[in-house]
């Protein structure tokens, strides 16, 4: 009985130590990456390429996600609010729900799936095919060349994507509201903007920037440390998406808490 308890405690201890070690490695990676973000050189060509990859090429998937989310949101809120005769709040709740919460979170998750996985696969392949070692031998810091452009592009482009998602999501709600639920077009638009505050949009954009950083960081970190050929790259890709998604949801709560009383 004592031996079983000891083994159980030892297993918990091993898991805890492994978790702490992984957290430490990620922290060191993040600190190193941030220090390179604020020191020259920055590669503008690579930064532009990543901004296009993260921002422009994510527009279709983000737009589709936003429009359907806005449409569903309008239907569900109508369904709920009609139970206590508050149908007039549909437009307001749709816009606040999208700008504060669903726009940034769903955009972050979609970009994590699309871009984070691609980053991990690309950097992971570069690691296992010695391309990252080759960068070093060619007097180029891999952090500056691979990680920094992705981190900056992620933190800059996610807010823009979320802004687009906000607009498209509200439009989706508007379409359902006016075409299906019978709202008057002008009054729906009035209700949308009447109670919308600057902080609703700003808090969403702050979240978006944090989520963009997380997506890029978790795309780069597992890829940079991948080992063992194709299997290692596959594992890095899975880790990138899963860890980015969990961190986005955790960060979402923390940032929401920060903005809660504002």
């Amino acid at each position: 009985m004592v031996a079983v308890s000891t083994n159980f405690l030892a297993a918990i201890g091993r898991i805890f130590l492994a978790f702490m070690a992984a957290t430490g490695r990620l922290s060191v990676f993040t600190a190193t990456a941030l220090s390179h973000c604020v020191t020259p050189p920055i590669f503008p060509r690579l930064l532009f390429r990543q901004m296009m990859s993260i921002g422009y090429y994510s527009l279709p998937v983000v737009g589709m996600t936003a429009v359907f989310t806005g449409m569903v949101l309008a239907l569900q809120i109508y369904s709920g609010s009609s139970r206590f005769n508050a149908e007039g709040a549909v437009a307001t709740i749709v816009v606040i729900g999208i700008t504060r919460e669903l726009g940034p979170v769903l955009t972050g998750l979609m970009v994590a799936g699309r871009v984070g996985a691609a980053m991990a696969a690309e950097i992971g392949t570069m690691r296992v095919t010695e391309q990252i070692d080759a960068l070093t031998t060619l007097s180029t810091n891999p952090f500056k060349y691979l990680v920094v452009p992705r981190l900056i592009a992620g933190a800059l482009m996610l807010p823009l994507l979320v802004l687009v998602a906000d607009i498209i999501g509200v439009m989706g709600g508007y379409l359902v509201g006016t075409e299906k639920l019978g709202f008057n077009s002008a009054s729906y638009i009035d209700n949308t903007f009447e109670f919308l505050e600057q902080i609703d949009v700003v808090s969403g954009l702050v979240k978006a920037s944090a989520f963009g950083f997380i997506v890029s960081l978790m795309g780069c970190y597992p890829g940079y440390h991948s080992r063992g050929g194709a299997q290692g790259v596959g594992a890095a890709t899975t880790n990138a998406v899963v860890s980015a998604s969990i961190l986005i949801l955790a960060a979402n709560y923390i940032i929401t808490e920060l903005f809660f009383d504002i």
């Binding site: 392949t125 070692d133 031998t137």
Partner: peptide
């Protein structure tokens, strides 16, 4: 380290060319 690395060139086993 960068200064010393400027003295080196390397041909990797897999060539390690940059795909992009």
């Amino acid at each position: 380290r960068d200064r010393v690395l400027e003295k080196f060139g390397m041909l990797f086993q897999s060539a390690a060319l940059f795909d992009s």
